[in-house]
Amino acid sequence: MKVRIRSPRDFCAGVIFLLFGLCAVLMGRGYPVGTARNMGAGYFPVVLGALLVLLGTVISIKSLMIAGEKLENIGLRPMLLVLLAIGVFAGSVDSLGIVAATTLMTVIGAAASPESRWREVVVLTLVLLGLSVGAFTYGLGLPFKLLPF
């Protein structure tokens, strides 16, 4: 008998919950579980993890039987570039300083939208630099390093 996934969206959601639950149970068992009277660090995580495994399984099985929504397309450009912009900010702010981090983030972030125009991006970058240096670093006194040296 061939099993068909009738609701791909729910199937994926179910599997994700199942995996999170499994991780929680497996890792939670590594901590002292204790007893109901004297619960250890592992007790609550294992119980919750098991519950999540159960819920994930039910959601996945239901998705095989009840028809539902297809998966939405993933817009790779906005997703990857926005996440990259955040990642570059996180990676550069301590080493290269706030000026470089702001510039990189604005330019990469702006590239996520096909509607961005480069002239505007230049102006926007300058404005945001003014804010992150003027308002956040000097105004609010956040301990940012300005430049890499």
């Binding site: 926005v82 900010f89 996180a90 702010v93 972030g109 926007l124 945001l128 804010l131 956040l142």
Partner: peptide, 18 residues
Amino acid sequence: YRLLYPAILLFCCIGVYS
């Protein structure tokens, strides 16, 4: 929105960092 979201993105990052 193309002018707004980079600013929101930056403020969010600075907010979390700080």
